[in-house]
Amino acid sequence: MLKIHHKWQGRAVLVQIANPARAQGKDLKEIQEESCQRINRTFGHEGYSPVVLIERSMAAVEKMAYYSIAEYVVVTAVRDGMTLTPYEYIVYRLGIFDSADSEAKSPAKSMLVVSEFIGCSPSLSGAIRINPWNIETTGEALNEAISLSDAEKQLRHEKHYRYVSTHNVVYWSKSFMQDLERTCMDLFRRNCWGSGLGFGFRVVAVDPNFRKLHADGIVSAYTKAKSRAILLDYDGTLVPQISINKFIGSFFMHLKIAIKSQF
């Protein structure tokens, strides 16, 4: 962002809170330190460091203080289940007070730039979603986030806060229990099949109307159809990769024979 948008040089500061690594190794730490030093050498000057790297465990109160004064929070994880950082930031921003009147609270404002790969990304509709692997678009997203008007930041904050305040632990617990109850009520009319051995064993419950596709039926429907769309499982998501390879090979062999027989 600093390289493309020079107006933020000397003004924008990124506070990188790096949680201690769970495993032994210096590779990640060295990369973080080298990147921080390189950016500060290029864009920093006396009295100004564009990147502040914090490499230690941080108490919740201290982290709350950082979140409460941050103009926006950036989460660029490429692998994550459900990080709570964006939700915590939204709540902590309510701690902002008007410096002119300590009794009156100014309207809360917040802005989020989140990776499209994290679990909470779909629920934060007001956030700017990015692909962290694309450096250019990430830089543009940071510029957009910091350039938004206060009114826009306030609207997005209110939207996110409504979601966070209603989708709490009680909500998730009830929704999980409702899903379990609904599944159990429907379980007795389903057909259950066992598949695999040992740790790979799985029980699959399917609807009574479910029927397994056979290569002959697929070939027949394919040859009769005027418009065709072939959807294949990818990388063993639903079934083992070996089964996919065998099925695809068998399918195209039958398809080739069927097509030849037409001419």
Results as ranks from 00 to 15, higher is better:
residue 3 K to T: 12
residue 4 I to W: 08
residue 216 D to M: 05
residue 179 D to S: 14
residue 242 I to W: 11
residue 96 I to P: 01
residue 50 P to W: 01
residue 179 D to Q: 13
residue 94 L to K: 15
residue 109 K to P: 06
residue 14 L to H: 07
residue 20 P to Y: 02
residue 152 E to K: 15
residue 89 Y to M: 00
residue 116 E to N: 11
residue 46 E to K: 09
residue 86 P to D: 02
residue 210 F to T: 09
residue 174 K to E: 15
residue 97 F to R: 15
residue 146 I to N: 01
residue 44 G to F: 03
residue 146 I to V: 09
residue 257 I to N: 08
residue 127 A to I: 03
residue 252 F to T: 01
residue 159 K to I: 01
residue 69 I to G: 05
residue 85 T to I: 15
residue 38 R to I: 04
residue 209 N to M: 07
residue 164 V to P: 01
residue 123 S to L: 05
residue 226 K to G: 10
residue 23 A to R: 08
residue 247 F to L: 14
residue 230 I to C: 13
residue 260 K to R: 14
residue 211 R to F: 01
residue 94 L to G: 13
residue 164 V to N: 02
residue 69 I to M: 07
residue 4 I to R: 15
residue 39 I to N: 03
residue 180 L to F: 03
residue 18 A to H: 00
residue 21 A to F: 05
residue 165 S to Q: 06
residue 244 I to K: 10
residue 129 R to G: 04
residue 125 S to M: 04
residue 226 K to A: 12
residue 63 K to P: 01
residue 80 D to K: 07
residue 237 T to H: 02
residue 223 T to G: 03
residue 218 I to N: 05
residue 258 A to P: 11
residue 29 K to G: 09
residue 223 T to H: 03
residue 246 K to F: 14
residue 123 S to K: 08
residue 163 Y to I: 12
residue 120 C to W: 02
residue 124 L to M: 07
residue 252 F to S: 02
residue 259 I to A: 06
residue 163 Y to D: 08
residue 206 V to A: 11
residue 8 W to T: 01
residue 85 T to Q: 10
residue 19 N to R: 14
residue 86 P to R: 00
residue 254 H to N: 12
residue 108 A to P: 13
residue 20 P to C: 03
residue 140 E to M: 12
residue 5 H to N: 07
residue 116 E to Q: 15
residue 221 A to T: 10
residue 16 Q to D: 10
residue 123 S to H: 10
residue 239 V to I: 15
residue 111 M to W: 08
residue 61 V to L: 05
residue 142 L to R: 01
residue 25 G to Q: 05
residue 82 M to R: 11
residue 97 F to E: 07
residue 184 C to T: 10
residue 246 K to V: 14
residue 237 T to F: 03
residue 31 I to M: 14
residue 176 F to R: 09
residue 205 A to G: 05
residue 133 W to R: 04
residue 136 E to M: 04
residue 98 D to E: 07
residue 194 G to H: 06
residue 117 F to E: 04
residue 99 S to T: 02
residue 148 L to F: 06
residue 191 N to D: 11
residue 159 K to R: 08
residue 165 S to C: 09
residue 24 Q to R: 14
residue 218 I to H: 02
residue 142 L to T: 00
residue 243 S to I: 10
residue 112 L to Y: 12
residue 34 E to K: 14
residue 176 F to E: 06
residue 11 R to L: 06
residue 261 S to V: 02
